[in-house]
């Protein structure tokens, strides 16, 4: 069967969940071959995990370049590996970096590139990608029509399913191009975890907007999130005001989330915010303005002051949990 190259994203020596989703999707298209770059001592553990999720082969490469320079070292590695594997497609996680790697790789391979797929299917003409476009108001199906399809897939496109495979590890030495050392990473500060679920991975997201009024106000949003085991999101207005970190922003220029349940509090529902949340399964809204456009999306809405509604809801949830 055709081999599908999967770039396995990892952080702090651990495979990130979207990579397991990619391996799961890759099995629909062919035989997954995982690529693990710059994992150092963690490579063996990451390779084992990739094997658990269906990677028949795991190709690892380690070099200081992967951490010291931006994007290009990974493109060099993938280009070299694609040259020897000759895959039927290359899958990469849709992050800022993932999309840049995919695009440069596609250009070098003479291939078309599709970004932000939310689903993948196999067809005679190659992988068919589903994308959600124009602020999630259209669903598009597209294909790469030239070369080896290079496709980036959004987190949460599927749920990871284990399917143990050989996971045979091969390590390769990458010959880096002159361009690889073009952009130096002079320092890197890992994001501190809030202890809550990752925004893009969470089953429930509780968000606050300008209606939260102040940084302190987010404590009622966080309390509700914690009662549900949810991630916390914020509108750009709340982020721009400095009330909540940008890494929690939901929307066009933040994270695009598609959880089982999205609770929007004090958010009006601008198109750029909708772009990040309107594919959520169930949407709940708390807003004091009955005319707020976000109510158009609501499966259940409460017209009211979030500072009254949220604490009552949180208490009720905590009581029911006993």
């Amino acid at each position: 069967m055709a081999e599908i190259l999967v770039l396995v994203d990892h952080a702090d020596g651990v495979v990130r969940k979207p990579a397991l989703e990619l391996l799961t999707l890759a099995r629909r298209l062919g035989t997954p071959v995982a690529v693990v770059l710059g994992a150092g001592d963690a490579a063996a553990g990451i390779a084992a995990k990739a094997g658990e999720y269906g990677a028949e082969r795991v190709i690892t490469a380690d070099a200081a370049q992967f951490a010291d320079f931006l994007v290009v070292p990974k493109v060099d590695a993938l280009q070299q590996i694609a040259g020897s594997v000759n895959p039927a497609a290359v899958l990469v996680t849709s992050s800022g970096e993932g999309k840049e790697i995919a695009a440069r790789l596609a250009l070098r391979l003479g291939s078309g590139v599709i970004t932000d797929a939310v689903d993948l299917a196999s067809s005679e003409g190659g992988p068919v990608a589903t994308q959600s476009v124009f602020a999630a108001s259209f669903t598009v199906q597209s294909r790469v029509s030239h070369g080896t399809p290079v496709i980036t897939v959004k987190p949460n496109a599927t749920s990871p399913e284990a399917a143990p495979a050989a996971g045979a590890v091969e390590s390769v030495a990458v010959e880096f191009s002159a361009a690889a050392s073009g952009t130096k990473v002079t320092s890197r500060t890992p994001r501190v975890s809030s202890g809550r679920p990752e925004l893009t991975e969470a089953a429930i997201v509780v968000s606050g907007g300008r209606g939260v009024g102040a940084a302190d106000g987010f404590s009622v949003v966080e309390a509700l999130a914690d009662s549900l085991g949810a991630a916390v999101g914020a509108s750009r207005a709340a982020v721009d005001a400095g009330w909540y970190p940008h890494s929690n922003q939901v929307g066009q220029t933040g994270k695009q989330v598609s959880p089982q349940l999205y609770i929007a509090n004090g958010i009006s529902g601008a198109i750029q915010h909708r772009a990040g949340m309107q594919t959520s399964k169930t949407i709940v809204v708390v807003n004091k303005d009955p005319e707020a456009p976000i109510f158009e999306l609501a499966d259940f809405g409460v017209v009211g002051d979030l500072f009254a509604v949220l604490p009552q809801l949180t208490d009720e949830i905590n009581t029911r949990k006993g």
């Binding site: 598009v140 294909r143 949407i283 609501a298 499966d299 409460v302 009211g304 002051d305 009254a308």
Partner: peptide, 29 residues
């Protein structure tokens, strides 16, 4: 080097129940 096979408008979400908070909004939710 890419081709779009189809593009369809996403069905509009249908609005569900909207209640006004009269002291019980959190409990109703």
């Amino acid at each position: 080097w890419t081709a779009v096979d189809s593009a369809a408008a996403r069905p509009a979400r249908t609005q569900g129940t909207i209640v006004k908070d009269e002291g019980e909004g959190g409990k109703q939710l």
